[in-house]
Write a protein that binds this DNA or RNA. Sequence first.
DNA 1: AATATATATCGCAAATATACGATAAGCAAT
DNA 2: ATTGCTTATCGTATATTTGCGATATATATT
Lengths: 114, 114
Amino acid sequence: MAFASINEFPKKDIEVAAVFKALSHPGRIAILKVLAKKQSCICGELVEDLPLAQSTVSQHLKVLKEAGLVKGEIDGPRSCYCINKEAIKKMKRGCGDLFDFIDKYSEPDTSCGK
Amino acid sequence: MAFASINEFPKKDIEVAAVFKALSHPGRIAILKVLAKKQSCICGELVEDLPLAQSTVSQHLKVLKEAGLVKGEIDGPRSCYCINKEAIKKMKRGCGDLFDFIDKYSEPDTSCGK
DNA sequence: AATATATATCGCAAATATACGATAAGCAAT
DNA sequence: ATTGCTTATCGTATATTTGCGATATATATT
């Protein structure tokens, strides 16, 4: 990243890549799964369910929140998190579009080795 | 990463996260799109189409190859790359599974703020 | 007011990722 | 054999990510 500008790429690709990045850590995938299962839960519950320190979980939550994948709400002395369903739907569509794009053009099979 | 082990997480989540990671850079998304459009092409063509140096493109190709998303074949003095359609299909399924999992459990809506 | 609880943030260390130029390695032609 | 072309890899610099403990902050409770 020293020289090339990230802005050289299409805006949409940058956005999709950013969400992929948020999903690119097993801990964050695990967080999403717990949130989905429990509908919503506080940070402390997540810490119990994950092999990570409290501060680390909090950091991952921040990443997920900045990517828009989860929503958070202060609830007394706690913080209650839940899945941002809209964002998941959007991501589902985004992935679908990308993979369909790849599929569409790469038909018929013109494989080129291993 | 100093203390917690990545192995504490489910194998499947680790795998999915790894592919997400490969997709988490706009340059690599761009490479996949070019490969899809042209069916297959050599490294030099990719370099022409991208705002990156040859060595950088080569590195991104390596990442995509290690993630299994593209296949490569030496063709004389060149290297010919193409989409690994099987991997894309698998990724499509993997994403679908993950997003469906999240969707399924997070019904009915129990949103918890912004 | 003092204490306990929960979480975000700070500060730090180590590991990875990103980018480039330079070089090496491979093949094809002269 | 030498030259030219293409691509992978090396070396390096910088930025980002990941992780933790410690601390600050905010709310409840006593």
